Simulated scan of single mutants.
Amino acid sequence: MSDTASHTASDVPPAPAPAPATPPPFRPGLEGVPATQSAICDIDGRQGQLTYRGFDTAILAAQSTFLETAYLLIWGDLPTAVQLREFEHEVQMHRRVSFRIRDMMKSFPAQGHPMDALQASAASLGLFYSRRALDNPEYIYGAVVRLLAKIPTMVAAFQLIRKGQDPIQPRDDLPYAANFLYMLTEREPDPLAARIFDACLIIHSEHSLNASTFSARVTASTLTDPYAVVASAVGTLAGPLHGGANEDVLAMLEAIGSPDQVEPWLDRAIAERQKIMGFGHREYKVKDPRAVILQSLAEQLFDRFGHDPLYDLACALERAAAERLGPKGIYPNVDFYSGLVYRKLGIPRDLFTPIFAIARTAGWLAHWKEQLGANRIFRPSQIYTGSLPRQWQPLDAR
């Protein structure tokens, strides 16, 4: 037997203890920390460019439709004419919601916020379509169709129910955007208004790993049903730091009052470190490309249906802010002009965020489908800042 073979395990020196791992730096809000890989959306914040699957959103807003864009986001490529026609037909045929959901909505308090009503209603769909087959392409297609079709119907239904009216049934002959506006008013919308609203849906439909989309992906990673995924994202979008800023922009413009008050108001707001609603974005150091599109859409509406004095205020504020805040990379974001567009379309102010949800459902579903393709449940670590180990004390000794 060789000398080497005669050694026992006890003769082998112990391996050195591994050095303690250095914890990664803590970044509040996970700012700049990659949490996933995605092929859906790309943002160039310095150039002011936003693309869906490689297509510039400005071109999509001008040339595409919301459902065609949704198809692109979810399945990765533009549909053929046959695919688009079939997809549009399926969505049209699934717009109606169960009378049980409508009855449930009638029990909601009339003063409740439409986002809360939408979250509850979206989650309830899981009761009606409880079969879960996340590896079945037909199941995924059907879930996409139902959610894209029924979310707008739910938003419009609650708007009428809280006014004491019966919901208006969708019209199968109207395109997606026109049908939603019809369900709000029971009047067929002007074609230009419908087209502009459709473009608004396109540019709000996706924006990378924002808070609600991250919420959707985390929920999706547990392999729950897609209705719970969308409901969780709606709940996240309802927070004032994510959705709803366009409502605050209108309130801000109304508080300023007139163009001659813009500069004094802005100087006071900057001096007092107030947040200027509709300005600044974590991703963009230039004007949000969606704000550029929305400003153009607003001007088209005003040319056709009459001017809005708040638009003059908004333009004056943008000019004044460019001098004071532009050097810091703070420019108008998507919320700055969207409220003016919705206001001219006659949409109630507290429906602005639910409309955001109607559009963003396409992006949430795209991320849901992508998450299923290479799933691993999200489980980030933390940096513990609590007490060191302590001794237990009996109740009578505390």
Rank of each mutant, 00 (worst) to 15 (best):
P152L: 03
P152Y: 00
A193M: 12
T213S: 06
Y176R: 08
A199S: 13
I168D: 04
S130D: 15
Y139M: 00
P170N: 12
G126Q: 14
D172M: 14
S130W: 11
R195Y: 09
V144D: 07
D190N: 13
L184H: 04
F128M: 09
A178S: 15
R171A: 12
S212N: 05
M154P: 00
D172G: 15
C200E: 00
L201C: 14
R146L: 12
L147M: 07
T153Q: 04
S205I: 13
D172E: 15
I203L: 14
N179I: 09
L160T: 06
A133D: 08
T153N: 02
K150A: 03
L201D: 08
R146Y: 02
P167T: 11
F158D: 04
S212F: 03
A177R: 10
H204T: 07
P175Y: 12
R131G: 12
L201H: 09
A149C: 10
F197Y: 13
R171K: 15
L174R: 08
R132W: 00
E186P: 00
H204E: 08
G142T: 08
P175T: 13
F128L: 13
N210Q: 02
F197C: 07
D198T: 12
E188I: 15
N136R: 11
V145L: 06
N179T: 14
L192Q: 10
A211G: 08
P175A: 13
T213R: 04
V155G: 03
P191N: 06
F158R: 00
G126M: 08
K163F: 01
R187W: 06
D166F: 11
V144L: 02
H204W: 12
R195Q: 13
L174I: 06
R187I: 05
I168C: 09
L125Q: 09
F197A: 03
T153R: 02
A199C: 04
L147F: 03
L201F: 11
D190F: 09
F180D: 02
P189N: 03
Y176H: 15
N136Y: 08
G164L: 12
K150R: 09
Q169I: 07
A193I: 07
Y176L: 08
A143I: 02
F214H: 01
Y182T: 05
P137W: 03
S205N: 10
H207A: 00
N179S: 11
L209P: 00
I196C: 11
D173N: 14
A199N: 00
L181Y: 04
P137T: 04
L160D: 03
D198L: 09
F180E: 01
L147E: 01
A194H: 06
A211T: 07
P152R: 01
V144W: 04
I168W: 01
S212W: 04
N136W: 13
L174T: 08
V155E: 00
L125R: 07
R146V: 10
R131T: 14
H204K: 05
A156N: 05
F180C: 06
T153A: 10
S208I: 01
I203H: 05
L184E: 00
Y129Q: 06
Q165T: 04
Y129M: 02
E188L: 05
A211V: 13
E188F: 06
M183A: 10
Q159Y: 14
V145T: 10
S205F: 08
Q159C: 11
T213A: 07
I140C: 01
L125E: 03
P175R: 13
E138W: 02
P191D: 12
Y176K: 12
F197D: 02
G164D: 11
G126V: 11
A199F: 00
R195A: 14
S212H: 04
A156W: 01
